[in-house]
Amino acid sequence: MSQKKEALLLLEDGTAYKGLALGISGTTGGEICFNTGMTGYQEIYTDPSYYGQIIVNTNSHIGNYGVQLEDEEESASVKIRGMVCNTFSPIYSRYTADFSLQEYFERANIVGVSNVDTRHIVRHVRQRGVMNAIISSEILDEKELMAELKKIPSMDGLELSSEVTTENSYFVGDESASQWRIAVMDYGIKKSILKNLTSRGCYCKVFPAKTPFEEVMAWQPDGFFISNGPGDPAAMLYAVENVNQMIKTSKPLFGICLGHQLLALSSGINTYKMHHGHRGLNHPVKNLITGFCEITSQNHGFAVNPDEIENHPDIEITHVNLNDKTIEGIRRKDYPAFSVQYHPEASPGPHDSRYLFDEFIKLLRAS
């Protein structure tokens, strides 16, 4: 599609931005949020945790290095609902790229808008908080588009993991060369997480989100991994119950992002929807055990209640965000279970936190 067709971005509070259409011609809506990463847009678009969301890429140029399918896909398909950027590049410079980002979006049926003031959008969302939005290159009348926007459900209370999970269980890794069998609950798993597990001697069986605990245990795993994913963790009572039963087996358990929130909920700690969430590649987190700081890759719009954790007899806070003091990591004192709110596998992002996979391996060795 030519980058000359007009498109309209309309926010839930009535704020509108006119720009140029990208991807396919159409209309799409979801919760609008922004990611501050300067690279890694393809990994972001295929991260299942972004399912149901419109992404504002804050970097000034998007698309200039094209798309490479082999190494940079975090799932089997693009998961975002729409994309917003300032300058969208129809050409790319990387010789290993398979094709342009425009063609990538056309293949994935993604609607987007460019040539809008992304700095203004980000400041607006930071001040007002995340909200639903809609993009259209078909409906340019604001009143008509607002009527469509009102049909989009709020992310608060929305269960989405069952929409992005695998339909059938599958295996990752080399069983004959692996030391541990890890049951992975797929609530929106990223491929990079599985690579980090298998490279450390884990043979993984990835289970659909709503797999009963008894079926998971029938495989006789040595440990559990609770994945990242989209939506409101408080709406996932089926997962909270499963994690609670997994903890009580005393087998090592590691959770990331949504998995962190589910570990908290299964321990009796509530979660809440954040004002505008954490999404980017440069969030400073302090490890309270070692005293060291790490720069982390983050993508979450929910967090765990700090007051309830501080007063919990069986929970220790292990990591805190240095920007806003939100809880970034916890561990159980009575069971070998721990979790972090961010992405130690990164992809995209820094590798400061990959040691957490090694911590999981230490628990497996000790069990």
Rank of each mutant, 00 (worst) to 15 (best):
E345V: 02
L288K: 01
D324I: 12
S266N: 01
Y342M: 06
S267K: 07
I295M: 07
K273E: 11
E310I: 14
E310F: 14
D334F: 02
E345G: 04
D352S: 07
D314T: 11
K333N: 11
T326V: 08
R331K: 13
Y335A: 10
H351G: 14
H319Q: 08
H343R: 14
L322C: 13
S347H: 06
K325N: 13
E345M: 09
H278G: 00
I269P: 14
V340N: 04
Y342I: 07
P348I: 05
R331M: 03
S347T: 10
I317S: 03
V320K: 04
D352F: 03
T318K: 02
H278P: 13
S266R: 00
I309W: 05
D352T: 00
A337S: 07
H351Y: 09
I317Q: 01
Y272E: 02
E308S: 08
F357R: 01
N299G: 14
L322G: 13
D314A: 09
E316W: 02
P344W: 10
I361K: 01
N321W: 05
C293A: 08
D352I: 00
E359K: 12
D358K: 11
R354Y: 04
E316H: 06
Y335D: 08
I289P: 05
K286V: 03
H312Q: 13
G329V: 05
E308W: 07
S267E: 03
N282Y: 07
G268L: 05
G349F: 09
G349R: 09
C293N: 14
S297K: 03
I327S: 03
M274F: 02
L363P: 08
I295N: 12
Q298R: 08
E316D: 10
N299L: 09
V340S: 10
T318I: 07
A303G: 14
A303V: 10
Y335M: 03
D324V: 11
F338I: 06
Y272S: 13
L363D: 05
Q298N: 02
P284C: 02
E359A: 02
K286S: 10
I269W: 01
P284W: 01
N311H: 15
A303K: 04
I327A: 01
K362Y: 00
N321M: 12
L281A: 13
L288S: 04
Y335P: 15
T271P: 15
N323R: 15
I289R: 03
T296E: 02
